[in-house]
Amino acid sequence: MSVRPDDEYDYLFKIVLIGDSGVGKSNLLSRFTRNEFNLESKSTIGVEFATRSVQTDGKVIKAQIWDTAGQERYRAITSAYYRGAVGALLVYDISKRSSFENAERWLKELRDHADQNIVIMLVGNKSDLKHLRAVTTEEGQQYADARGLSFIETSALDASHVEEAFVRILTDIYRLVHKRHLASGDPTVAKSASGAVYQAGRGETISVGNLSHDNRSSKRKCCS
């Protein structure tokens, strides 16, 4: 089994995209991973997956992103994907007030099913729909500040801030990991972390508490 060059990465993070149906989660994902936008995309059934690597702080970070269906009925299926995620983009549509108001419910979903240390970014999508805006930028920012989330407004349609959103959350996660790694100074953390990487690379549960993802050791582990 050969490892292709584009599979070389230092860290691998699992991210989930959540939020109400129709807010543009799938288009954010396709814009980020393939630079594509589809005005007539079909609804997501269950979960869909995509991946992309970015460089930040001199490290290559591979994002493994799970895009979940927004409908309530799918919650039982989709919440299983929160496990092991180290980051979540909670997306709402700036032109649909209800999707912003539902943010609280999505945060509760994360509290119930995801790791408590998961890094969350609130994303107000469809910023191109200025004439239909129903949630101001300030409101979004205030809500995020009050809950300790980072915040950004994006448009998957005109591509504005999409790259920035993903790179920012990945960087935040990386820095958090790095800090904890240094603080721990404990070789067992690195060891358990490498196990976590191996698992994270395969979509399994890891603990954000051991958020260290040194991939090199895992590569040896999974390919030897």
Partner: peptide, 20 residues
């Protein structure tokens, strides 16, 4: 081995009767 679960891909096959 690759830790791919059936639910990850077969959910839609069932839910939409393979229409997609």
């Amino acid at each position: 081995k690759e830790q791919v679960t059936f639910m990850q891909f077969a959910f839609r096959w069932m839910n939409c009767l393979l229409v997609r």
